[in-house]
Amino acid sequence: MGPGGDVIAELAADHRELEALFSQIELQPVDHPRRRELADRLTAELVRHTVAEELHLYPVVREHVPHGAALADKELADHARAERMLKDLEDLSVDDPQFNDTIAKLKFEIASHVREEEHELFPKLAATLPPEKLDELGRLVRRARETAPTRPHPPLPNTPPAHSEPPRVR
């Protein structure tokens, strides 16, 4: 995922890809096995995306964006809800009625999260950081996505380990 640009372009491209995956799932017949394949791909891409945001975006938002701690906490809560849904989805077969319900709830959750990020968080970030720092953050996000897990782990904390340093973007 991602075009190789600054952090905002990277994450917005991820958002478009996630939206496209939801659309592909919806285009399949209700109990078609392809829905499972697409749901698994959606899960992997969404987990990579959230890990990259949690490792690199939100620590910078906390440090540099006015009221950034509250924004980051809200985004992390959104991620935790989505991760629980992904974990539930993992155990469902496409012929289970809960599969479709979970996909619909997840789509709503992700759409709301994307709107908030793109209309509130991203403009604040762009107004706070110079372009070269946004580019640097984009590189960090790309690298994190390459090595991120692809399965949800909701019981784990949504913050980096205490011994790790958040990225220093000044």
Rank of each mutant, 00 (worst) to 15 (best):
M1R: 03
G2H: 01
P3C: 12
P3Y: 10
G4T: 11
V7F: 00
I8N: 01
I8T: 13
E10P: 11
D14T: 05
R16K: 14
R16S: 12
E17D: 12
E17H: 12
L18K: 04
L18I: 15
E19D: 14
E19V: 15
A20V: 10
A20L: 12
L21V: 09
L21T: 06
L21M: 08
F22V: 09
S23I: 05
Q24Y: 01
Q24W: 02
I25S: 03
E26V: 03
E26S: 10
P29A: 10
P29W: 04
P29E: 09
P29S: 06
V30P: 07
H32V: 04
H32K: 01
P33H: 02
E37P: 02
L38I: 11
L38H: 06
L38C: 09
R41A: 04
L42S: 03
L42P: 01
L46P: 00
R48M: 07
H49W: 09
H49T: 11
H49M: 10
H49Q: 11
T50I: 10
T50R: 07
A52I: 06
E53P: 10
L57N: 07
P59K: 05
P59I: 07
V60Q: 01
V61E: 03
R62K: 14
E63T: 13
H64Q: 14
V65Y: 02
P66Y: 06
G68W: 11
G68I: 13
A70L: 14
L71R: 11
K74D: 08
K74F: 10
H79E: 09
R81Q: 10
A82P: 03
R84K: 04
R84N: 03
R84M: 03
M85T: 01
M85H: 02
K87L: 10
D88P: 00
L89N: 00
L89Y: 01
E90R: 13
V94I: 11
V94R: 01
D95Q: 13
D95R: 14
D95S: 14
D96H: 14
N100D: 15
D101A: 11
T102Y: 02
A104E: 12
L106K: 00
S112H: 12
H113V: 10
H113F: 05
V114S: 08
E117K: 14
E118S: 15
H119L: 15
E120D: 14
L121F: 10
P123G: 08
P123T: 07
A127R: 03
A127T: 00
T128L: 05
T128W: 02
T128I: 08
L129I: 12
L129F: 06
E132M: 08
L134Y: 00
L134V: 07
L134E: 01
L134Q: 02
D135I: 03
E136A: 13
E136P: 04
L137R: 02
L137V: 07
G138N: 04
G138V: 05
G138C: 04
R139W: 05
R139G: 05
R139Q: 12
L140G: 06
V141T: 04
V141E: 00
A144N: 08
E146L: 14
A148V: 08
A148H: 07
P149A: 11
T150R: 13
R151G: 03
P152M: 05
P154G: 05
P155E: 12
L156K: 15
N158R: 09
P160G: 11
P160C: 07
P160H: 09
S164W: 09
P167E: 06
R168H: 15
R168C: 11
R170Y: 14
R170H: 15
